[in-house]
C-alpha cells in the first residue's frame, strides 16, 4: 500500500498570492531558467546586456517569457514558471538587490517593502489559506 498524503496536493494552490514551485512549474520554467543560469558567467552577462533580444533568442523560451524578461516583469515570469532563485540572477545582472527583486513581485514599492521588513515583516494572519481566510 502506498503511504497516504498528509494533505491534498491541491492545497499547495490554496495559499494567497503564492506559486509553489512544483515539478510541473519547474518544467514550465525550464528554458527560462536555462537563460537565468547562463547569467552566472560574466561573459554571458556582457553579451546579454549588449543585445538582450538576440541573447534571449538563443534559448528555447516562449515569446511570452522572453518579453517578460525584456520588461523585467518578475511577477509575470513567476506566473510563467519562474522561481526566484533563478530570477535573482537576472536581478543581479541588473545590479538589483534580492530585496528589491522580491519587493517588485509584492505589489508594494521597494521603499514600502523595506519599511515593512524593518517593522517586523508581513504578518501571516489572514493570508495562510484562501479557503479558510485565516
Amino acid at each position: 500500500m502506498p503511504r497516504t498524503r498528509l494533505y491534498p496536493l491541491e492545497d499547495l494552490e490554496d495559499i494567497p498570492g503564492t506559486k509553489v514551485f512544483t515539478a510541473l512549474r519547474s518544467r514550465q520554467g525550464y528554458y527560462l531558467h536555462k537563460f537565468c543560469m547562463s547569467l552566472m558567467k560574466e561573459a554571458n552577462r556582457e553579451e546579454f546586456k549588449a543585445d538582450e533580444k538576440a541573447y534571449l533568442d538563443k534559448f528555447r523560451m516562449t515569446e511570452e517569457q522572453k518579453q517578460a524578461v525584456l520588461d523585467r516583469d518578475l511577477t509575470k515570469l513567476i506566473d510563467l514558471g519562474g522561481n526566484m532563485y533563478f530570477l535573482v540572477k537576472l536581478a543581479s545582472t541588473d545590479g538589483m538587490s534580492a530585496q528589491k527583486a522580491v519587493s517588485a513581485t509584492s505589489g508594494m514599492s521597494a521603499d514600502e517593502y523595506a519599511k515593512m521588513m524593518l517593522e517586523g515583516g508581513r504578518n501571516p494572519a489572514g493570508i495562510r489559506s484562501i479557503r479558510d481566510k485565516n
Binding site: K19, G107, Y113
Partner: peptide, 17 residues
Amino acid sequence: MSHQLHGSRAGLINEEF
C-alpha cells in the same frame, strides 16, 4: 527562518512560529 520571496505574501515573517 520564516521568509517568502515572491508574490503578495513576500516578506512574510512569523515570529511566533
